[in-house]
Nucleic acid binder design. Structure first.
Lengths: 214, 214
DNA sequence: ACGCTAACGCACGCTGCCGTCCGCCTCACT
DNA sequence: AGTGAGGCGGACGGCAGCGTGCGTTAGCGT
């Protein structure tokens, strides 16, 4: 017993861990502004257990959305692989918006920046680079307006995150329409009025901790 | 002294009231999620005083944004008066977005629905009706895409409210660019891909009270 | 000048969330 | 079956915001 592996979890612990993530995913679907207690409660677990597995909310969020993160990357890759760059670009916008519409928490997570969630940042960076490449090609093909900049994607995603609706269905429908409008706006067109100056969007601060303004 | 006027406030009370509103406006500029205490503190007033003047946060918000509400109406009227309906329409979109960018709290207030703030609702209704008329004319003039619907404005306004930025300046710049994109999307164009189905947006619930998820 | 009463603010009790300590339980290995 | 360490959950102290009761202060009308 000399080697100190990061030791696998015991079976019951692993089970709880999974239940916690499940609960978190369910609750975060409506937004990250959920008490940790609530997650624990829903998972049928004491607060201490939750905290033991996920000492901070950020860690929980990061783990909970790992799947979505993969979906995100898949979407980007799919777009990148499309022989028609404009089609690929549109696809990315649409799918991203849809992903966001399904899960408000993930949206917030995407927009927020986690100081300690390294791979989150990395994936984000990867996606943006890919989209940039896609945009370059779409411009070259003359389908994407020339004055488009990468930050416009962030702008659209943030904007999309502002769209709320009563029911999940409405939410998705609304997002879908919004994405279509965004694409309309991005499309190259003979009579394009020039766009106002570009913005440099800094990502938002952090995950809501309840009981603190900002 | 037989008539029971809603009795004018005493001079000091009036003064405090004004100071409270001023503080509220300043703080709400960054969002409605501000403790009542904070407003009181900034106004140099005890909590009790604040609560006496404005028993609920909604009341405070409504009063604080009365001015913006007027500005809102002014914008709409200006757009309606424009001889070129498309130009008027664009103007409304731009100004509305700018108004929102300046004041995140007002944004939230616009999107939220207050059960008890009657005139808020009325003004909101008025603005929407006006925009609808404007849109009708702009369509007739062939400048606004035919498949535009009034709810698209709400969609854009909600979306615009999702845009956050570090500094107020960036915020305005970002919103401006977004508005331009939205207008691009709304513009009638020979090669319009059809939009997905329309959404019926129900307004959001209520004002954040701190310490409650939703 | 005086007194009545509106207006004020301190301070209280309540609620909800946070993160942790500690004694008991149970899995897993022999 | 025995045992010990890893895991569990109840309970606690702390903090922040809420809304109000109550004794004091100061405008305003006579």
């Amino acid at each position: 017993m000399t080697d100190r592996l990061p030791h696998a979890l015991r079976s019951d612990a692993l089970d709880n861990r999974e239940r916690i993530l499940e609960a978190a995913r369910a609750l975060f679907a409506e937004g990250l502004d959920v008490p940790m207690r609530e997650v624990a409660r829903r998972a049928g677990v004491a607060p201490a257990t939750l905290y033991r597995r996920f000492p901070t909310k950020e860690m929980l969020v990061t783990e909970a959305f790992a799947e979505q993160m993969h979906a995100c990357r898949a979407v980007v890759d799919e777009g990148l692989a499309d022989p028609d760059p404009w089609h690929g670009f549109c696809l990315v916008i649409e799918k991203m918006c849809e992903l966001q519409a399904h899960d408000r928490g993930f949206t917030a997570a995407l927009i927020s920046t986690f100081p300690n969630a390294v791979d989150f940042e990395a994936r984000r960076e990867y996606a943006l680079t890919a989209i940039d490449e896609l945009a370059r090609r779409a411009k070259e093909a003359g389908r994407l307006r020339p004055d488009f900049v990468l930050d416009d994607v962030l702008l659209v995603l943030m904007a999309n995150s502002g769209i709320h609706a009563a029911s999940p269905t409405t939410q998705v429908t609304a997002s879908r329409r919004f994405a279509a409008l965004a694409i309309s706006a991005f499309q190259a067109s003979p009579d394009v009025p020039p766009l106002p100056p570009v913005v440099r969007l800094a990502p938002q601060a952090s995950v809501p901790k309840r009981n603190q303004p900002g």
